[in-house]
């Protein structure tokens, strides 16, 4: 059917990143360059970005109209969100195929999540 947008969420953790060799880090960069070039050429890439280290993250919470910020990510997990691709695919299998080409899937994991849209059919 009509293409659907998928968010590919790349997870990383400090240990896995630190344990990479220089070659592996280069390989990672190359793999992402190739993938985003291919997705761009195919007219499927909506947006993509890498995210800065969680050390730079600020978490915002509003309670009783008061804004509080804390350092670091909200979720207390070893893994953090390291980047994302927003792509249009014909189906989820195509999106899974792209996720599987990211070396990050080998090191930690990549989540594939359908993006909600505003269209709907009356029941």
């Amino acid at each position: 059917m009509v293409p659907v947008k998928y968010m590919l969420l790349i997870y990383s953790n400090p240990e896995s990143w630190a344990s990479l060799s220089a070659e592996q880090r280069d390989g990672l960069t190359r793999a992402h360059e190739t993938l985003s070039r291919e997705l761009t050429e195919q007219g499927l890439l909506v947006s993509a970005a890498g995210l800065a280290d969680p050390i730079t993250t600020r978490t915002v919470q509003v309670r009783d109209d008061t804004t509080m910020t804390t350092d670091g990510p909200y979720a207390e997990a070893k893994e953090h969100l390291a980047g994302f691709y927003l792509v249009e695919c014909d189906n989820i299998d195509q999106a899974i195929g792209y996720a599987a080409r990211m070396p990050d899937a080998e090191y930690v994991a990549v989540e594939v999540r359908p993006v909600m849209d505003m269209s709907g059919l009356e029941m």
Binding site: K5, T40, Q42, G43, L44, V46, E88, D117
Partner: peptide, 15 residues
Amino acid sequence: AFLVPEATMAQRISR
């Protein structure tokens, strides 16, 4: 209409 950037759509059409 399809809520994608113009550049993405332009690529899709030329491809």
